[in-house]
């Protein structure tokens, strides 16, 4: 009759295992270097200019609005997508999708975002909201 026998463990403890091999550590260093460089370049691009929420449908820019300051009213935008209309609210907390026709509702659940480089993507409805810039805005809205 066939029996399963356990062989003696050949590995080390988890803390020792975590160190990886020399090749693993070289890969890690390369990955971190690439990520840090990309992050730095993107932040340099994204942080310039006023803080603006950009709303896209597919490859089309639908509208961009500056993030309202304290005391300024919230902005409600209806963005037409593949499945229907996504409702975007831009207020002091940032930009968020408050309603979407998609099934998963992940875009709604992701909440408000206000930092440069943040994105909210509703892939089924092909809607993207990005935050760019970090300075106070000097204009009211740009709509295309």
């Amino acid at each position: 009759m066939a029996t399963l026998t356990r062989q003696k463990p050949v590995g080390q403890s988890l803390s020792v295992t975590l160190k990886g091999t020399r090749a693993d550590r070289v890969l890690l260093a390369l990955a971190l270097l690439l990520i840090a460089t990309a992050w730095w370049v993107i932040q340099a691009v994204m942080l310039s200019g006023p803080a603006v929420a950009m709303i896209y449908h597919g490859s089309t820019l639908l509208a961009s609005y500056p993030l309202p300051g304290p005391g300024e009213p919230a902005i409600h935008v209806t963005a037409g997508g593949e499945l229907g209309d996504s409702e975007v609210i831009i207020d002091q907390q940032g930009a968020r999708i408050s309603a979407s026709p998609c099934v998963t509702q992940l875009c709604v659940l992701s909440g408000a975002h206000r930092h440069a480089g943040d994105i909210i993507a509703c892939v089924p409805n092909h809607i993207l909201v990005t935050i760019q810039g970090s300075e106070d805005s000097s204009y009211d809205a740009i709509v295309e």
């Binding site: 890690l28 990955a31 971190l32 990520i35 840090a36 990309a38 992050w39 993107i42 994204m46 950009m54 896209y56 597919g58 490859s59 480089g117 943040d118 994105i119 993507a121 892939v123 092909h126 809607i127 993207l128 990005t130 760019q132």
Partner: peptide, 18 residues
């Protein structure tokens, strides 16, 4: 969503993936 702006979110997510 044919927008390169999508990739702005990539570095922090790649750090988490690392």
């Amino acid at each position: 969503i044919q927008q390169p702006a999508l990739y702005y979110a990539l570095p922090p997510l790649l750090l988490l993936s690392t």
